[in-house]
Design a protein around this nucleic acid. Structure first.
Ligand SMILES: [Mn+2]
Ligand SMILES: [Mn+2]
Ligand SMILES: [Zn+2]
Ligand SMILES: [Zn+2]
Lengths: 158, 158
DNA sequence: GTTCTATTGATAATGATTATCAATATCTAA
DNA sequence: TTAGATATTGATAATCATTATCAATAGAAC
């Protein structure tokens, strides 16, 4: 199952993201290297919910020398740098999406074709906050996935 | 990480659940067998969010002859019979909770100690329904997990 | 009881993720 | 510029939950 995002997004911000990533590496005493740079470049150009394997395949097309481990490690770093976010639709494969200059959202996924719609509702978020507060918790994150059938898949199965 | 439920629940309904399970087996042309029966009995007595491995360990204490595969298969059947529900907190292990005579709820989980609180809010559910409808989808299921620190863990880390 | 079929449990296969490690690249300080 | 210290890399192995396989067994129908 491939989860395709329905929304596009600008890409002029890639340079900004790379500056942030470099600063993040420095702050950790880590080095800016060619393999990392290439993986980051490819990731930032892809506006999708992408798995490690997916990204590795794409990177591999143009950079045969880069290994799977490096791709996986770089995604982890991007996550820690706040530039991407893990998304998990419970199918056994974690995906990553852009986070820099992307507002928080949840997901509505079609179980028929994998179509993915990014949803957001202020009231919904507020109710969550209230529930968390009510139990004295401090929220770290949340994840709302709604699964269903998109209009096309409804017709297809009818 | 063990996720412990905070709510207790009655257990006089186990007999009803077993009747439903038997009918489910019949409707599928499947047989009621001793191993299945034992696994179901143990599961129904445990009011927790439990993994296959967890349940296998518990079953194994009193029924050394029952294998892991049978436990896993029986949980799958219970799920299909509508008697349990998969829950996934994204830690790589799927858990199961009772579903029969249990209202739908979402989860607030402490990332510090694993404490689990079952939450429900009618408005929140309604907003979700509206979002689904707005995009022309037919909802099959949804999953909301909120992660945070419980009051105790907040103190511990302060 | 006989026959057919479902079930079982041990074990292997799978697949995503994470760990290991020798070779290589980069940085720092002389 | 160079040598030594350290970080990084990529191939590969290990891990771990889940799923598949299959010969042996048990249940149902007659
Ligand atoms: Mn998204
Ligand atoms: Mn629950
Ligand atoms: Zn669809
Ligand atoms: Zn806690």
């Amino acid at each position: 199952m491939i989860f395709i995002s329905i929304k596009g997004c600008t890409r002029g911000i890639n340079m900004e993201a790379k500056v942030i990533f470099d600063r993040f590496l420095s702050s950790r005493g880590m080095r800016r290297t060619a393999p990392r740079d290439k993986v980051v470049n490819v990731f930032l150009k892809i506006e999708k919910h992408i798995s490690t394997q997916d990204l590795y395949s794409i990177v591999h097309r143009t950079h045969k020398e880069i290994g799977y481990a490096t791709v996986a490690r770089t995604l982890k770093l991007l996550d820690e740098a706040g530039l991407c976010r893990k998304v998990d639709f419970g199918d056994g494969t974690v995906r990553y999406e852009h986070k820099y200059k992307h507002e928080h959202h949840d997901h509505l996924a079609c179980t028929g074709c994998g179509k993915l719609i990014e949803i957001y509702n202020k009231k919904l978020e507020k109710i969550q906050d209230e529930l968390v507060k009510k139990h004295g918790f401090i929220q770290k994150s949340h994840r709302l996935n709604i699964f269903g059938l998109c209009p096309k898949c409804q017709k297809r199965k009818a």
